[in-house]
Write a protein that binds this DNA or RNA. Structure first.
Lengths: 149, 149
DNA sequence: ACGCGATTATTCGTATGCGAACAAATTTAG
DNA sequence: CTAAATTTGTTCGCATACGAATAATCGCGT
């Protein structure tokens, strides 16, 4: 009896809203929106921010090296670096020891921007994780880290 | 002496690799790569797949309605739908009751493609979550769901 | 020394992703 | 009932993303 009802109107067994891929995309979407809200004014995107922060930490690296460190495709890197250099936030100079490489470094404006954005970073993380309790946040980050290759 | 070393070379207190945003991006990146590996041959992207599956479930919806259901911007929707329609995977017809709306529905080729992709979906999910145990997978999905708005 | 494979950066093409501005149509408020 | 607000779809501009192809260079083995 109940079985017949269920067979007749079961709905799809594949529920998009429960799929990891969809949820990862939405969570990332939500984080980007929060980032935009908090940092948007200073005109820097999440990827550009990552590049600036990493550069501030390392001092000098080649373009591809930096790309690997922030998990960015060489082709994508091209565009990101070009835009940052066009705005005078980073410097590019050829590596004398390896003429294939471009050595990147932070320009003063880039350092200022990175410092400013860094101040907002804690709040961005806080807001992103705010639906979870402190314990849940730790658990989530630990699991997520293992899914991020 | 070791202490002096540590004080002198402390590293940044902001570690990019531990940030939710970065981890979400990398996890999503990894999932996309797995999707590409498993479904790539049938020429459909994660977003296109989501649109097809939702359409298969609902039968007919307007473009913006479908967009809201799969968390896709109206502007982005435009491009996705245009490409699906150009390949003959979906049909578009004006809504007689509301002349602003475009009613979308699955074409036979679209249904075939959706069915094929659906078969691979379980494996994609399995591979994406494979670094975690069954218990961890359940916990992760439950937490992730709450971070996806 | 030389030659061949790997690495680096670039370019092209395609596909999201979204803010902003718009025109047409619909709904709602006064 | 009409003017204002909202909704729908479109277009533009900018910014990821990444596979594939290419040219220049490097490094390693023989």
């Amino acid at each position: 009896m109940a079985e017949i009802q269920q067979l007749a109107d079961d709905g799809p067994d594949y529920v998009l809203e429960k799929q990891v891929g969809h949820l990862l995309r939405r969570a990332h979407q939500r984080h980007s929106a929060i980032f935009q809200d908090q940092i948007g004014g200073s005109q820097v995107t999440p990827l550009q921010f990552a590049a600036l922060i990493k550069l501030a930490d390392l001092g000098e690296v080649s373009q591809n090296q930096l790309g690997r460190l922030i998990a960015m495709d060489a082709a994508t890197m091209q565009g990101v670096i070009k835009r940052l250099a066009a705005r005078g936030l980073i410097h590019r100079r050829p590596d004398p020891d390896d003429r294939r490489r471009l050595i990147l470094s932070l320009a003063p404006d880039g350092r200022r921007l990175a410092d400013g954005a860094l101040a907002a970073a804690a709040e961005i993380t806080r807001l992103t994780l705010s639906p979870l309790s402190a314990d849940e946040q730790r658990a989530f980050l630990s699991l997520l880290e293992r899914l991020a290759e």
